[in-house]
Computed example of a mutant assay.
Amino acid sequence: MTPVGQWHSIDDKTNELKSLIIIKEAGGVLTGHIEKLLRKDADQKKLCTECSDDRKDKPVLGMEIIRGAKKVEGKDVWEDGKILDPENGKSYTLRLTPIEDGKKLEVRGSVFGIGRTQTWVRVQ
């Protein structure tokens, strides 16, 4: 089981599809970017005006939102990376855990141990 692949992120509040995320692996490190914005009212030209790093004022579409996650030895868990929420420009410590035979992905973002977990669904 691996997070590598295509995923639908789902809005916590509305349960609507939010975006298509593609996660890739190179040299044991995962990265992920927004391939497509899926909300009905999504602005495909939206910029990350809230970002404060190299992604500031860059298009959200195509943006790398997952950086640096590595597999925990002996576990189907990837940690030590960061995930960006382009809606508020904040980066969070990341944990990725494939569940349900890899059909879903628990995506945990946290700061000082406080955070939230989203469940993404693998695109078949």
Rank of each mutant, 00 (worst) to 15 (best):
residue 1 M to S: 09
residue 2 T to D: 03
residue 4 V to W: 00
residue 5 G to A: 09
residue 7 W to G: 09
residue 9 S to T: 15
residue 10 I to S: 07
residue 12 D to G: 04
residue 12 D to C: 07
residue 12 D to P: 05
residue 14 T to C: 08
residue 18 K to G: 13
residue 19 S to N: 06
residue 19 S to W: 01
residue 21 I to D: 04
residue 23 I to K: 01
residue 27 G to E: 04
residue 28 G to H: 04
residue 29 V to E: 12
residue 32 G to F: 00
residue 32 G to V: 01
residue 33 H to Y: 08
residue 35 E to W: 01
residue 36 K to S: 15
residue 36 K to A: 13
residue 36 K to M: 13
residue 37 L to Y: 05
residue 38 L to N: 15
residue 39 R to M: 14
residue 41 D to H: 05
residue 45 K to P: 06
residue 45 K to Q: 15
residue 46 K to T: 10
residue 46 K to I: 08
residue 47 L to I: 12
residue 47 L to G: 11
residue 48 C to I: 04
residue 48 C to E: 04
residue 50 E to S: 15
residue 52 S to E: 14
residue 52 S to Y: 06
residue 54 D to G: 12
residue 57 D to S: 14
residue 57 D to P: 13
residue 59 P to M: 05
residue 60 V to L: 10
residue 61 L to M: 13
residue 64 E to R: 11
residue 66 I to F: 05
residue 67 R to T: 15
residue 69 A to L: 07
residue 71 K to F: 01
residue 71 K to L: 12
residue 74 G to C: 15
residue 75 K to W: 01
residue 75 K to P: 00
residue 78 W to P: 00
residue 80 D to T: 01
residue 83 I to N: 09
residue 85 D to G: 07
residue 86 P to D: 09
residue 87 E to Q: 14
residue 87 E to N: 12
residue 88 N to I: 12
residue 88 N to V: 11
residue 96 L to H: 02
residue 96 L to F: 00
residue 96 L to V: 04
residue 97 T to C: 02
residue 97 T to R: 02
residue 99 I to V: 15
residue 100 E to C: 07
residue 102 G to H: 05
residue 103 K to F: 01
residue 108 R to I: 00
residue 111 V to C: 06
residue 112 F to C: 08
residue 112 F to I: 15
residue 113 G to I: 06
residue 114 I to K: 12
residue 115 G to F: 00
residue 118 Q to H: 07
residue 121 V to D: 02
residue 121 V to T: 12
residue 121 V to H: 08
residue 123 V to G: 10
